[in-house]
């Protein structure tokens, strides 16, 4: 059995019924996908399998055999962030960050399918993802901005339509 994770091929030794999440984190040491609830309810473990967003905690690794897996580590690098990662910084869409990798990958898959800035469509695409900080407005704004193809200054935080303070930080 083998997986190609973020472009690198790995031979897999875990049993076929092991959740893909556990294979990524424990066998391969790739920790971008988070174990939130481990039962499919939160979306923190979502990765792309052949471009499609799937809960890695619910996916027997045997079903991903031979697949191309993208985790958040495959979206961009610290020096070369992807557009959606820049959007999340600019729109302040990550708070504690635990849901962020799943949100980024579901958002990226939505954009890759030709998704637009339509809020309702974004909410449907991210419908399985829980943010315990309840930062949904910012997350939807960030995905919408990335879907529109905006460019971002990641040294500045945007003033969103739900932001009440003009500067956002302590002065």
């Amino acid at each position: 059995m083998n997986l190609t994770v973020n472009g690198t091929r790995h031979e897999i030794e875990s049993p076929l019924l092991t959740p893909l999440l556990d294979v990524l984190r424990e066998e391969l040491g790739i920790t971008g996908a988070k174990a939130g609830c481990h039962q499919g309810g939160c979306g923190a473990c979502t990765v792309l399998i052949d471009g499609e967003p799937r809960r890695s905690c619910l996916m027997p690794v045997g079903y991903a055999d031979g697949g191309e897996i993208t985790t958040v580590e495959g979206l961009g690098t610290p020096d070369d962030l992807s557009r959606i990662q820049q959007a999340f910084i600019h729109h302040y869409a990550a708070q504690c960050g635990y849901c962020t990798s799943g949100m980024l990958l579901a958002g990226q898959a939505y954009i890759d399918r030709g998704g637009t800035g339509d809020e309702e469509a974004i909410q449907t695409a991210l419908g399985g993802h829980v943010c315990r900080c309840t930062g949904y407005s910012k997350i939807v704004e960030a995905v919408a901005a990335a879907a529109r193809g905006d460019s971002f200054d990641v040294t500045e935080t945007a003033v969103g339509k739900h932001t009440t303070m003009a500067t956002g930080g302590a002065e």
Binding site: L16, L17, P19, H38, Q39, G40, R55, C57, L58, M59, P60, G62, Y63
Partner: peptide, 26 residues
């Protein structure tokens, strides 16, 4: 029987199910 796996995987993860044989239907 494992169809998509969305119902049985948490049961396996938490060892509530410990089957002797599993059928992956994909």
């Amino acid at each position: 029987v494992v169809g998509g796996g969305t119902i049985v995987m948490p049961e396996l993860t938490y060892r509530r199910l410990q089957p002797t044989r599993a059928l992956l239907l994909k």
